[in-house]
Design a protein around this nucleic acid. Structure first.
Lengths: 204, 204
DNA sequence: GTCTATAGCCAGATAGAC
DNA sequence: GTCTATCTGGCTATAGAC
């Protein structure tokens, strides 16, 4: 029993290592340029062994997306537990997290055009569930922030939601980082401020 | 002489048709998922014939990017000729154009990670020249708008420039369009307003 | 310059021994 | 479950006839 649990633990940690590699490679090169051989080499196992854990390249990507969504949900729940912060501050904190992860090269991104990939994500219940949960939580804060007069009430909440989500794959931070002239923290501050200011209620 | 000119004209129009197909397919599926076979089929010629006009898939993509940059420059020059508009209104008009083209499915987008593609673009002088010209023009308007107090003077002009450029590959319009709940014009208005408001000077 | 046919390659996925 | 070796398909690019 203990032995079985130990085995499971080893299995889990190996799969976790795989997902970590996929996560990084996905952030670095994107789905199309990432090869399964590369993942295997990065993890340090044979390609065939990878396929014992995950049935396809798409499944690898889906696993990485599920993990990043889990982390996003963690961040959301951490923010929900803050007694001092209003909805706008919470939305800002979550957006900041996404920007920081992206700038650190750890935000996996998928091409929205690839249909086989969309199919795999739709076939992964955990993905849809997590995405819906995160969206609902953020959506509540958005509506509240609009009612508070902090966010533009003329914008449909989903427009605000998509605008925040899009920060996770915003090319601007990467360009600024590539330029090498600004510190990461400075870049995050600027992009975050531009995003939130754009959504804020215009003074009459 | 007339005959040669005629031939050249035919050649030109064929190459133009090729670039049009590439442009559309690039906007629709992206570089990696676009196949040369597809381009050939779309134009209605054999793949080998394509390679008589363009030496590689990368060159096809580069040609499409050059064309869209030429059009962007046209828009910039049209705005520069408006006697009534200030720098902010001109920047807004150019951004609006980019959003409209993107929403119409005619904005070619390249993966910024692909290195062979970067090499091809760097090896295409017209691309760099056009990109620099457009950037310089927009940069002037940005500095002026900051001096006028219309744009946040605390932002480096390049941050503003990248933020505007990024509208050409913003995923938000496409998501909203896919939802089917809003008209294209409405989507453009929202995304444009969010973008420009984000860059605007905050009232003290 | 256009075509058909094919070379050459690479990446996703699998077979089968251990 | 791990490995080595291989299959398979699809894609870029080219040969060679017309």
């Amino acid at each position: 029993m203990a032995r079985l649990s130990f085995r499971e633990q080893v299995l889990r940690s190996r799969e976790d290592a795989i997902v970590s590699s996929v996560n990084r490679l996905l952030a670095e090169k994107g789905f199309d340029l990432m090869t399964v051989d590369e993942v295997a080499a990065d993890v340090g196992i044979a390609k065939a062994s990878l396929y014992k854990h995950f049935p396809s390249k798409e499944a690898l990507a889906a696993a990485a997306m599920v993990r990043v969504l889990r982390r996003a949900l963690d961040v959301v729940e951490t923010q929900a537990a803050r007694p001092d912060a209003g909805p706008l501050a919470r939305l800002e904190a979550v957006t900041r997290w996404a920007l920081e992860v992206q700038l650190a090269g750890e935000m996996p991104t998928l091409p929205s055009q690839n249909s086989t990939l969309r199919a795999e994500l739709l076939a992964t219940p955990a993905y849809g569930d997590l995405l819906m949960t995160v969206s609902d939580r953020l959506g509540e804060w958005i509506v509240q922030a609009q009612a508070d007069g902090d966010l533009d009430p003329a914008l449909p909440p989903e427009v605000v939601l998509y605008t925040i989500f899009a920060r996770a794959c915003d090319p601007v931070p990467g360009f600024l980082k590539a330029g090498g002239r600004y510190a990461d923290a400075q870049i995050v501050d600027w992009v975050l401020a531009i995003c939130m200011n754009g959504l804020r209620r215009r003074p009459a």
